[in-house]
Write a protein that binds this DNA or RNA. Structure first.
Lengths: 201, 201
DNA sequence: AGGCAATGTGGACAGTGTCCAGATCAGGGC
DNA sequence: GCCCTGATCTGGACACTGTCCACATTGCCT
């Protein structure tokens, strides 16, 4: 059987996801940096060496958690976009996706932080599972950004897409780090993205 | 004597800064997360317990490194602003300060990362040395931002200041994480901050 | 039914942060 | 000048960690 737990306690049956879940749970209070493989095993009710048969390494577990988190973030963005009607303004789509990005970080700070930890995932050579997720997130941001500037040059679209990613990412990081609150990010994002705002020139 | 090393090897004379320097040096290759107190002591040529007489804790060392790094970042911003003539446009000042923020992160990724590690510095209750540094950075950003929108409302100034901080911070983080290059941040920042850019509306 | 690969166990080792007792030194009060 | 108090440094110890090893148990395929 593939999923169900065996009667004998010796073989867990589905240890790998159980370990991941235990790790995600522990991370909520410890952060991925202090996450201990042995404690994960303890929570999962298994010996301290069992994880090594599913993840060759502590870093391999962290990489997997990072991929799962990135998939969640991507899902949040796509659902935020899907929740809006096509008749809504392109700017509303952009703001909604950006807000979803920030809200995911605020809701799951440790998961958000592990996604972008250079010690876990090196974007220069991302894992086979991570690469398409990164590309998908960039794609969503590029789509909602370019829709707000239909007449702009290609260079401007690329530059603004990077800028939008940086803006929402930075606001998210500042919230996670505790420097600003989630409530402050809404007007900040609006002020940045709305060129019709009063900027004096 | 206050600074010079004693002849007797027993008392170092100025171990505290020596430990900090050794730690900063080690961090360049390991990152602050993997930084080992014992290795710091080894590099400083001292027993594994000597650091405890200058930093009560491993976290205390990291906090100190975080403060030193924040002071460096602040210095980079003020020098970037001072290098420009008062006759330069407010927008040039804003872009210069933002670029300096990102360039510091690109040059010293580990130092930049330790500044904003919530496990090291909790902005809710920052240390007595950290608090004024944070305030000073925010103040610089607020000044260069508000100068670009002299007729804007107070709320808009506050919102855009937060947005600018988020934008430069996010671009810096994306560079440090390896998702974008330093060269991509320039046009991204310009596209975000320049309302006269072609945005189609 | 038998054997093999997957999955689990306990033991061992080096490395780490931290506490403790004792050694060494510097400087101030007699 | 001398001693003594406090600051600084040392080595030893403990619990914990990641990782490797040999061995036990089990499910599955032939």
């Amino acid at each position: 059987m593939l999923v169900s737990r065996s009667d004998s306690a010796y073989h867990h049956g589905s240890l790998k996801p159980a370990l991941e879940d235990a790790a995600l749970d522990l991370m909520r209070t410890t952060g991925h940096t202090e996450l201990s493989l042995r404690e994960v095993a303890r929570v999962a009710g298994v010996s301290h060496n069992a994880p090594y048969h599913h993840f060759g390494d502590r870093t391999a577990l962290l990489k997997r958690l990072s991929e799962r988190s990135m998939a969640e973030l991507l899902d949040s963005l796509t659902r935020a976009q899907a929740d809006l009607a096509p008749t809504d303004s392109p700017r509303a789509h952009l703001v909604a996706v950006g807000a979803a990005y920030i809200e995911y970080a605020a809701r799951y700070p440790e998961r958000f932080r592990i996604i972008y930890d250079p010690a876990v995932c090196v974007p220069g050579s991302p894992s086979a599972e991570m690469a398409p997720l990164i590309a998908a997130v960039e794609d969503i941001l590029a789509r909602v950004t370019s829709a707000t500037i239909p007449t702009a040059s290609r260079e401007t679209v690329v530059a603004l897409t990077t800028g939008v990613w940086g803006a929402v990412h930075g606001l998210a990081e500042l919230v996670v780090a505790g420097h600003i609150t989630l409530d402050e990010t809404r007007p900040a994002l609006a002020a940045l993205l709305d060129p019709s705002a009063d900027r004096g020139i």
